[in-house]
Design a protein around this nucleic acid. Structure first.
Lengths: 232, 232
DNA sequence: GTCGGTAGTTGAACACGTTCAAGAAGGGCA
DNA sequence: TGCCCTTCTTGAACGTGTTCAACTACCGAC
């Protein structure tokens, strides 16, 4: 039921735990089949057969078919982080940094649009460990929020002192919104999602800048109070 | 597979189509069991047995277990409309009207919080006919948007002329956001969702009022352009 | 009244995700 | 080498949602 501790597999290291090979084999086979046939059309029996193991063996490593999704989730997060690095190195202004990181996220997801859309329904269920808000996803989620913290800290943007600590999580929330739109985006190449990013980033940028204005201080305060209340 | 035409069942009218009784029996049994045991724990066999029909018969009226959810969906929309009526009759200002209608929606959903949360995952899948954005749900969706149009038209609020036609759909979208929060809301009695409504309505109210300001005209324009682009 | 066609109904059968008791493989220790 | 314990592996079996060929009930037409 519980996950393996994943002993920091160094490149080419043969001294991994006994089952680590099998685990990766099953995971990679599943990812391939998901991409080839889609999530629903890929049966656990097919995954096991293609991987050359028994069905029960897959369940030794992954508690359920859904847990294989979580694997995809974590993997995407790592790829997103890597794809964002050049942007963080290159850009200095807040807007371009944010836009670049959002685009990088969609870049990473794009090859999986077909089946990612299908499985995002599981992520939406609150009781599921797969929900991006769940305790089980807190690892990848924290990593993602950290990425948006870097968007902020590395930028030249001047941000209201009270807003600053809340902002990374808010940006992550906005990213979740973008992903939600992307999942439903049927335009060719999901170009509308790109337009959404390019359209919404300047607005966020402007909003963040405005938050420091004396006149808008009460509103900013009101929003921040609300957010703090709604947090768990 | 397809739905029955639902021949406007007048109260006490015995001259309904032959299967209409069975259809309602199955639907009501399903709703009861969903509430009693939750969605996943209610099997199609249990529904059929409790309703006193064969399993296959349920599939004659409802294409799948998921389609029973759509029934719940439509039913909730009707109840929401009814629960909102007193508010629409009583309130004149935009803010209270909106708050009242949002609260009414949550009022209607509250008794089903346990199982509604579970099934909302199905609604999140873009390919599913159950998605609130899908063509199949366009009936209930249009009705819901119409409800928010009434919030606006009946109010004394002065709204930017260009924003006005877009606003009902935007308010509906905000309502979807509230519902999404509600689904994940684990606070006792979902009080946090109530706080969300009470906190966010004044913000929307203020934002709508501000949209008419000369200084903010470019921003309003920018937002409206973006929305029009992202629409299908 | 009987015939024919549509609407409604049945339950066994299928494929799937998941479980679990049983066993195999490996490695540390005497 | 022999033993034991943990880790890993197996595949039959269970309960589920869903399908479908067969059957029954009803109703209008003649």
């Amino acid at each position: 039921m519980t996950e393996q501790p994943a002993p920091t597999t160094a490149a080419g290291d043969p001294a991994t735990a006994r089952g680590e090979q099998t685990r990766q084999l099953i995971r990679d086979t599943a990812m391939r089949l998901f991409r080839e046939r889609g999530y629903a059309q890929t049966t656990m029996r097919a995954i096991a057969q293609e991987a050359g193991v028994a069905v029960g063996n897959a369940y030794y490593y992954f508690g359920s078919k859904d847990h294989l999704i979580q694997e995809f989730y974590a993997q995407s997060q790592v790829e997103h982080r890597a794809a964002a690095q050049p942007v963080l190195d290159r850009e200095e202004a807040f807007g371009p940094r944010l836009a670049g990181v959002l685009h990088a996220g969609i870049d990473v997801l794009t090859p999986s649009h077909g089946f990612a859309a299908t499985f995002f329904k599981t992520a939406a269920e609150p009781t599921s460990p797969l929900s991006p808000f769940s305790a089980e996803s807190s690892g990848p989620r924290q990593a993602a929020i950290e990425l948006f913290a870097e968007v902020l800290t590395g930028s030249t943007a001047k941000v209201d002192a009270e807003l600053r600590p809340q902002l990374p999580e808010l940006l992550w929330l906005a990213y979740m919104g973008v992903v939600l739109y992307w999942v439903h985006d049927r335009s060719p190449g999901q170009t509308k999602t790109r337009q959404l990013i390019d359209g919404v980033v300047p607005l966020i940028d402007r909003l963040v800048a405005l938050s420091r204005l004396r006149v808008l201080r009460p509103v900013t305060q009101q929003v921040l109070d609300l957010i703090r209340t709604l947090r768990h």
